[in-house]
C-alpha cells in the first residue's frame, strides 16, 4: 500500500528540527508505527520532519547517578549498550522484547515513547524505573515524570511543537533485581500484557518495589497497591501471590479481539507474579 504525498525535511540540527515541528511538522523517528499507518492511509501528515539525522539526539551516557538516553537510540542500541545492560538492565531486557530484530534495528526509544501505544513494551519498564522524559520545543525544555507523560491511548503530555529528546532512567544500585515479563499477541508480537518489576531487597526485606504494567488498559501504569503489599516483606511465594493479585485492582482493562478485559486482568496478575519472582531472584 502506498502513503499519501507529503513534504519531507531531514534537518541535521535539533534547532532546525524544532523550528519545523513548531510550524506543524510531524516528527519521523524510526517510523515503525507511523509508516505502516501512512501506508494504510490511516495517517497522512503533510510535512514529515525526519529527526533521524540529528546526531545530538544519539547518545547514551551516565551522569549524576542516572542514564541519559537520547531519543534516537534504537531499541537495538538500548538492548545491546553495555552501559544500559550493566546499569539499567530492566530497560535493556525490555527493549529486547520489542518486535523483531529488524524493528529493533530501526525503531527508537524516543519514537516509541512519543507514540504511546497502549501495547508497547517500554512503558512498563519506564513506569517501574520512574523514568523522566525530556520534552523540548523551539522555545522551552521541560522534564516530565513518566507517570505524568503517558496520559491515555496514543496520548501524552507532549504539547504542539514539542519533541521527546531524552529519556532519563536511574542507575541501579546493588541489591536491586528487575524483570520484564510479556504475554505476546501472537500475530503482531505486541504485548497483550507486559509487567516490569524492580525490587530492592535489603537484609532479607523488600525495601523498594516498583511495578509497571503495559497492555492491560489504555495507558501504562504503576501498580501502587501491589508495590505497597511487597514492601517490608521477605518475598515468600504467598506474599508474591498476594501482591501480584493486586496488580489489576481498580484498573479499567481494555478488551479486543485478542483478549477480554477479564483475561487481561488475570494475565496481569499472573505475569506480575512471574516478574516479581524473577526480579527477586536477581536481587542477590
Amino acid at each position: 500500500m502506498i502513503p499519501n504525498t507529503f513534504e519531507y525535511t531531514a534537518p541535521l540540527t535539533l534547532k532546525v528540527a524544532l523550528a519545523l515541528i513548531g510550524e506543524g511538522g510531524k516528527p519521523l523517528a524510526g517510523g515503525m508505527s507511523l509508516i505502516p499507518m501512512m501506508k494504510l492511509r490511516m495517517a497522512a501528515p503533510e510535512h514529515l520532519v525526519d529527526i533521524g539525522r540529528i546526531a545530538e539526539l544519539n547518545y547514551i551516557r551516565e551522569a549524576g547517578g542516572e542514564l541519559h538516553i537520547g531519543a534516537n537510540a534504537t531499541h537495538y542500541d538500548v538492548e545491546s549498550s553495555p552501559l544500559i545492560v550493566g546499569k539499567c538492565p530492566l530497560l535493556a531486557e525490555t527493549a529486547g522484547h520489542i518486535g523483531d530484530i529488524q524493528v529493533r534495528n530501526r525503531g527508537t526509544l524516543g519514537g516509541s515513547v512519543a507514540h504511546a501505544d497502549p501495547s508497547a513494551d517500554y512503558p512498563a519498564a519506564l513506569q517501574a524505573l520512574e523514568a523522566k522524559i525530556v520534552l523540548t520545543s523551539a522555545t522551552s525544555q521541560r522534564t516530565v515524570a513518566v507517570g505524568d507523560f503517558f496520559i491515555d491511548t496514543f496520548t501524552t503530555s507532549l504539547e504542539p511543537g514539542e519533541l521527546v529528546t531524552e529519556v532519563i532512567v536511574p542507575v541501579e544500585a546493588g541489591l536491586t533485581g528487575t524483570s520484564y515479563q510479556k504475554f505476546l499477541q501472537p500475530a503482531s508480537g505486541f504485548a497483550i500484557v507486559g509487567v516490569a518489576a524492580r525490587i530492592r531487597r535489603e537484609a532479607g526485606k523488600i525495601t523498594v518495589a516498583r511495578i509497571g504494567v503495559t497492555g492491560v488498559s489504555g495507558n501504562s501504569y504503576r501498580a501502587l497497591k501491589a508495590e505497597a503489599a511487597l514492601v517490608g516483606k521477605a518475598g515468600s511465594d504467598a506474599e508474591i501471590d498476594a501482591a501480584a493479585a493486586l496488580v489489576g485492582e481498580g484498573v479499567e482493562a481494555g478488551a479486543d479481539l485478542h483478549a477480554s478485559a477479564e483475561y487481561r486482568l488475570h494475565l496481569a496478575a499472573n505475569y506480575a507474579e512471574r516478574a516479581i519472582r524473577v526480579a527477586l531472584s536477581r536481587t542477590a
Binding site: 501472537p186 500475530a187 479481539l257 485478542h258
Partner: peptide
C-alpha cells in the same frame, strides 16, 4: 492460531497480519 473472523456486518476483523496469527 488461525481464524478469519467476520463480524455480523460481514467485515473481516482479522484482515491483516497484525491480527491474523
Amino acid at each position: 492460531w488461525e481464524h478469519a473472523i467476520y463480524d455480523d456486518a460481514g467485515q473481516l476483523v482479522t484482515g491483516e497480519f497484525m491480527d491474523y496469527a
